[in-house]
């Protein structure tokens, strides 16, 4: 009987005091926790608010400025965007450039990163540093200079020309992070493989590369996402022959309503998020920190 009574009492309280009222929350969490929760909420809104807004807009058929929620939901703008002649082709191009530039820079940079990590030679630090310099100048100035050369040697508007622009960014990623990973492979583990009977090449592929792999994967992912996001260089060098999602985005923003832009933004963001999710076990502050040491 006693138990029943208390249970009834609780129910009564719940009925009288709204548990979702600000007062109830504050009482449940305490003053300090409520403050923390508010700060968290503001930050979440700051970080994810625009993204959520874009998601919402992308699925709005009708949206009037000033409304919070669209007045009509649907896939109208999706079909509209995907029907645009240039756009499916530009998506394909974006991934083509991203795959090619990442793959090629892996081929070039992984051996280079190994050399930079394992061999001491004069000018090693200078070489490492020089890979950063490309990122230190305003890009637009560099592209203009490159453009002049491209015109002279006939690379303007060619696939290879755009690919080189993309690789400008990806090589930096593919040198620094993998060099850090290679450096963190203990030498004894390589020596143990040699000792067990493996030649230098087999040692590299059976021991060094697998141990350094997480760092290389993260670097490749960064390079891939970086290439997907490359816009200014492609715009200057590739147009009108080579259009990517990013260069098309400029047109969409200028020519279509915000809802179309939102659809396009999601098409660009989703592959990146997918990649991050797939690679999540490799991505850690540790791998990043190892990569950016001069050593």
């Amino acid at each position: 009987m006693e138990e029943n009574k208390t249970a009834n009492d609780t129910m009564q309280t719940e009925r009288t005091v709204n548990p979702y009222s600000a007062k109830a929350v504050r009482r449940a969490l305490g003053r300090k926790r409520t403050g923390e929760l508010l700060i968290l909420f503001v930050f979440m809104l700051f970080f994810y608010g625009p993204l959520i807004h874009a998601f919402m807009l992308a699925f709005a058929n009708v949206y009037q400025a000033g409304d919070i929620i669209p007045s009509e939901w649907g896939f109208h703008w999706w079909s509209y965007i995907l029907k645009q002649q240039n756009i499916p082709r530009s998506i394909l191009n974006s991934f083509l450039f991203a795959f090619c530039s990442t793959g090629l820079s892996m081929l070039i940079c992984i051996p280079a990163a190994y050399v930079l990590a394992r061999f001491k030679f004069k000018g090693r630090k200078l070489i490492m540093f020089s890979f950063l310099i490309g990122n230190a100048f305003p890009k637009i100035g560099m592209y203009t200079a490159i453009g002049i050369i491209y015109y002279k040697i006939g690379l303007m508007g060619t696939f290879f020309g755009v690919l080189l622009i993309h690789m400008l960014g990806t090589t930096m990623e593919m040198i620094w992070l993998p060099a850090g990973s290679f450096r963190s492979v203990p030498k004894h583990q390589e020596e143990a493989a040699r000792d067990a009977g493996a030649g230098p090449v087999r040692t590299f592929f059976s021991v060094t590369l697998p141990i350094a792999w997480p760092g290389i994967v993260v670097a490749a992912m960064h390079a891939f996402i970086g290439s997907l996001g490359e816009s200014v260089g492609t715009l200057l060098v590739g147009l009108p022959q080579w259009r990517t999602m990013m260069t098309e985005m400029y047109g969409v923003i200028l020519d279509f309503p915000a809802t179309a832009g939102a659809v396009f933004a999601i098409i660009i963001v989703v592959p990146n998020m997918l990649l991050l999710w797939i690679m999540r076990k490799y991505v850690s502050a540790d791998t990043m920190a190892k990569g950016f040491k001069m050593g």
Binding site: P186, H188, Q189, E191, A192, A193, D195, A196, S206, V207, P210, I211, W213
Partner: peptide, 13 residues
């Protein structure tokens, strides 16, 4: 010959 080192002998993967 075969060698055993002070540490990091085994391949972690």
């Amino acid at each position: 010959t075969s060698m055993v080192f002070q540490s990091y002998n085994l391949w972690p993967h």
